[in-house]
Each structure stands twice: as C-alpha cells, then as structure tokens.
C-alpha cells in the first residue's frame, strides 16, 4: 500500500496548488502510516516538493508536453498498478478534475472530489467534502481498496516540512491519445480564478462594462483574479469564464471581495468556501452582508478607487 500524489505543472514549473496537494498527500500517508511519493510531468523544479515533506518524486517526461488527459491518466495508471499504489491524491484544477474520473474508472477506484480535510476514519477511509455547491458538507466512505481523492483548493493549506527530496526519472508506457489539441488560448500574466489567492468580483451594481477598470485596478494591487456575477456575464459585460457561483466557477480563495453584488443564494453557493469575504454595497440590506466577514456600506464608485489608492500605499510600505 502506498500513496501517490499527482502534482501539476505549467511551462515546466510546478503549479501553485502543488504545495497544498503535496502537503495533504504527505499528511494523509502519515495518518495511514504508509509510504508516499509524488508524480510530476515536465516539472524542472520537482525537487522543491521536498519543502512540503515529499522525499521521493517520480518524474515523467516521455509524454506529451501539453496536457493530455487520457495519456496522463494512462501513465499514472500504469505506474500505480506496477507499484502497489492504493491511494491517489490530486488537486481540484480543471485538469485534475479531468484526469481523476478517467483514472478512477481505470483503477476501479472510488473517487471523492472536493475533499477538505484528512480522513476522520480509516476503515473504511472516510473523508469530509463539500456538497450541494458549498451549502453543506458530506462525510463520504470510500469502499474500494484503491481510492482517488481530490483535494479542494485552499481547503487544507500548505504545511512546510522540509526533507531531502530525490527525483527519479521514469518512462511512462506510451499510449495513443484519443484527442488532438487543435488550439489553446490562455490569458497570460494574469492570475486565474482557480489559482489566485485573492479574487475581486463585480456585479450589476457597477452599471456597465466601461466601469470595470475599478475592479481591474483593485485586482492589480492585490495580485488578484477578477470575477463577476452571472448577470454580468449574461449581458456580455465580462466573458463567461469569469462568472462565479452555483452555475459558474467555484471560488475558494483566501480573500473574496464582492463589489455591487447583491448576494443571491446561487452566487453565495459558489463563493462560500472562500475564507474571508469582503462586501462593498450601497444597500445596507443587501443579503451578501449576512454572508460576509467585513463590509463597507457605500457607493462602489467612491469606495473602490479610494480603497485601491490606500492599498497601493499599504503595499508600498510592506
């Protein structure tokens, strides 16, 4: 029995969420008292996982350099079945959620996504995860010998636990891909909702797309990703991939700042798992204040530029 932690990389470097997934995997293996290793594709800095307690990294570079879910799942499956891997720990990115069900089906494994804590029981392994789009939690038993666990973003946190880390180059069995990448479009240099520590989000209260510089400027100071409520993307003020909520993207950041968003139940459902929520709204009765940690009752057009200025000054000092 052993644990295999799947970490992701981009442009040959580990992705930000690798630290959290590794921290969870190491703690999980410790709790079960079994060994663990991490598996990375095309990551030149894979040894940095040692920072989070990973002593052994399997590095694979004989597969497609762009993400190919089926080929990657086959590679992981091949390695796992030859090395008596029983528990696979992954993240919650779009790519991780692409691979996980493929892998679980190949391994005949039970799969628990959106897991937020270490198992509360070990036999059978029982994990707590979010359900009903963050309106509740569920404790799920995994009844299979082999399991796949998807760790929610910013749910477990990063644990620094430096150890010496050795990276072993391993060739994966080559498998045919069943999908060909035709094109990829990616906003570069900008934090994404999935990766960011902070998200600044705007709603219909901003009146129109021409006012979005307010959101963007605040986001820039905070190194934050920008997001919006559903009507804002429905009206085409912002692109669809910024829409967060029950029917959009989930947000689980450390800080979520909602500006001119009323706080409808479907919006809240998608952002509830963010740690700290700040609401700026000119209506003191806006439902979002009930779900917020900090609030400012005021006109976004006055409050936001001031806040941006003050944060700039604060960051300059820090």
């Amino acid at each position: 029995m052993s644990v295999l932690i799947i970490v992701e990389s981009e442009n040959k470097l580990l992705k930000r969420n690798a630290a959290e997934v590794a921290s969870y995997g190491v703690a999980f293996a410790e709790k079960l008292n079994i060994s663990c290793a991490a598996l990375a594709f095309h990551a030149t800095n894979a040894n940095e996982l040692g920072q989070y307690g990973v002593a052994k990294v399997i590095h694979v570079s004989n597969v497609s350099t762009h993400f190919d879910a089926n080929a990657y799942a086959n590679a992981i499956h091949g390695f796992a079945s030859q090395n008596n891997v029983t528990h696979i720990i992954m993240g919650s990115s779009a790519d991780a959620k692409f691979i996980a069900p493929l892998l679980a089906a190949k391994l005949n494994a039970g799969y628990a996504p959106n897991v937020i804590a270490l198992p509360d029981e070990l036999s059978p392994i029982t994990v707590k995860r979010t359900a009903f789009t963050n309106k509740a939690f569920v404790h799920t038993q995994l009844l299979t010998a082999c399991t796949v666990i998807g760790v929610g973003n910013n749910a477990f946190g990063v644990i620094e636990n430096p150890v010496t880390c050795t990276v072993k180059e391993v060739d994966a069995e080559n498998s045919d891909s069943n999908l060909e990448q035709v094109a990829i479009e990616k906003t570069t240099g900008k934090a994404t909702i999935a990766d960011a520590d902070v998200v600044v989000s705007g709603g219909r209260g901003l009146k129109g797309p021409e006012n979005w510089h307010l959101i963007e400027e605040l986001a820039e100071v905070l190194d934050a990703a920008t997001a919006c409520s559903k009507p804002v993307s429905d009206m085409g003020w912002r692109s669809h991939d910024e829409h967060v909520g029950q029917t959009g993207k989930p947000v689980s950041t450390n800080l979520y700042i909602a500006i001119g968003i009323s706080g409808a139940i479907q919006h809240l459902a998608g952002v509830n798992s963010s740690k700290v929520k700040v609401v700026i709204n000119n209506d003191p009765d806006a439902p979002f204040f009930k779900a917020a940690d900090y609030g400012v009752v005021g006109d976004a057009f006055e409050v936001v530029p001031k806040l941006t200025q003050k944060l700039k000054a604060f960051k300059a000092l820090a």
Binding site: T126, K135, A136, Q141, D293, V296
Partner: peptide, 24 residues
Amino acid sequence: ATQDVKFEKPAEKAEVKLVPAEDL
C-alpha cells in the same frame, strides 16, 4: 464505490464587521 454517511451544515457565520466608508 462510495457511500455518503453523514451530512453537516456550515457553522453559523459570525456577524459581519462593518467599516465606515470614510475609514478604509
């Protein structure tokens, strides 16, 4: 392969801390 055995609702949120718009 899995079984949901228990549910939990999130803890009640503490009251929001309001900050005056003049005192950011």
